[in-house]
Amino acid sequence: MEEITKNIVKPETYLARSPLYRVHEAAGAHFEACASAAQVASYGDQSEPLAALIDLSVQHRFGIRGANAIAALSAAGLSVPEKPNQCLNSANGETVLRLGKTEFWVLGAMESGTCSADSSAFADCYPVYCQDSHACLLLSGEQLPDIMAKLCGVDLSESVFPKGSIAQTSVARINAIISHLPDKEGTHFVILCDSAAAEYLWACLLDAMDEFGGKAAGLNYLF
């Protein structure tokens, strides 16, 4: 299946599927092959919304933790954020999230959707299966702190939640990890939530975005 080029594809062609793919299909989204699965490329041909919600669940990510995690990341050429609840980009485009003293999640570069390694490459660390336990949503555009304030009790405005910050908190009454992506023009929040609750949170976010002109979108919104 690796041979399939970046053409319009169907999610059910692949063994790995986003927990949200049916929602996208029902809304008329177009998919492209990405990381051995179908990634939403665009959400119909609507005009560019002020804020966009993009499902990145099929893109690769992995987690490691344990006493050796910091050394292992450095050895693999990945950045290590200085403190818990910070995120940092690596040279190859991956984003490293530091969630605890010794817990790190690595998000694949957004354009390719892939990581340079996975947790099995870190034999002396404990794996965290965040590819499957969590859905990965990207909120991008204008007024993101206002949108999130309808769902979340933590202040996410730029002055107190600058680029590179992470908040592990409750969003619409479910646990979520919100990362303010570093080194990117504009505001981008990556929201990682329980994959089983992805459809629920997706609907909550769309509802919250509506008054700010926010809509569902695909990866084409970014590139």
Binding site: P84, N85, G100, G153, T169, S170
Partner: peptide
Amino acid sequence: PLNGLRNISEF
């Protein structure tokens, strides 16, 4: 101590 000041409902 890890996440800072939060609503008590998170605990």
